[in-house]
């Protein structure tokens, strides 16, 4: 159970990016986060693993207060929260395998990882994860030699190496074409269903939300505008979330 309580974030010299946002996510739910660009979706996701420090409010995960955690505690929390990014955020000059193994860093002794040494078990698991997303044969290529869809699959494999309880997906398909988008969403869905991993996924296209999410929340200007099943987003709700002049596409 992940509880977001009265979360606010104000960037220095900017407006409120998140304004008193509260909601709960039971373990194993597929939650879509929708909203315009700049509505605070990325900020919300990054506050959950504190890549961005929230200004006020609490994030409680399985009775651990993430916002109050010390650096050491935060690292143990982070390693159970995988993250997938819009621009994949792979280390482009490293091999695919190294990128996947880096998901294991939170579990590895820093002294060992300094010499690029991972346990055999981790290496075996890395191959298994790559196989699951269907690019095992690319393990020894450089990450930037892969296509966008393949890079995102490496990103998913990296997140899965963490053996996560939660995956935060920040617009994972926004840089991909529609066919690839569905294949990436299917991978996330599979992880969600088979491993009971909570998925928080920010999305732009409502048809993806309808197809994959159990529940959706909507942000507008940092405020929570909607919280409920995706099929409740009718035209009126839509206008409320995206503004009066918005037209539905897809």
């Amino acid at each position: 159970m992940l509880e977001i309580k009265n979360l606010s974030k104000k960037y220095e010299g900017g407006p409120l990016a998140l304004d008193d946002v509260s909601f709960n996510i039971p373990q194993g739910e597929f939650l879509a986060v929708i909203g315009l660009s700049g509505s605070g979706k990325s900020t919300l996701l990054r506050c959950i693993n504190r890549l961005i420090e929230p200004t006020a409010g609490d994030i409680v995960w399985n009775d651990i207060n993430v916002t109050a955690a010390s650096d050491d505690e935060l690292r143990t929390v982070r390693r159970k929260i995988g993250m997938v990014f819009q621009h994949f955020n792979l280390v482009s000059r490293s091999s695919v395998l190294t990128n996947v193994l880096s998901g294991r860093l939170g579990y590895t002794n820093p002294a060992m990882s300094f010499f690029n040494k991972f346990s055999q078990e981790d290496v075996d698991n890395a191959y298994k994860e790559l196989e699951r997303v269907g690019i095992a044969e690319k393990a020894h290529q450089r990450a930037d030699e892969l296509s966008g869809g393949q890079q995102q699959r490496v990103g998913i494999a990296r997140a899965m190496m963490q053996n996560p309880a939660i995956i935060l997906a920040d617009e994972p398909v926004a840089s991909l074409d529609p066919v690839l988008a569905h294949s990436i969403m299917q991978h996330l869905e599979k992880i969600n269903k088979e491993h009971n991993v909570t998925v928080l996924c920010s999305l732009h296209f409502l048809d993806l939300v309808h197809q994959y999410a159990d529940r959706a929340i909507a942000l507008n200007d940092g405020k929570l505008m909607f919280d409920g099943p995706p099929n409740e987003i009718d035209d009126a709700k839509f206008k409320e979330i995206y503004g009066k002049d918005a037209e539905r596409v897809g």
Partner: peptide, 26 residues
Amino acid sequence: GPIEAVQATGANQLQTIVYAVVPQII
């Protein structure tokens, strides 16, 4: 981006430098 991604895995600062910074600056 890569720094953010490696930090998100629970890596400490040394690991972040070794895995996200060093490959980019070689």
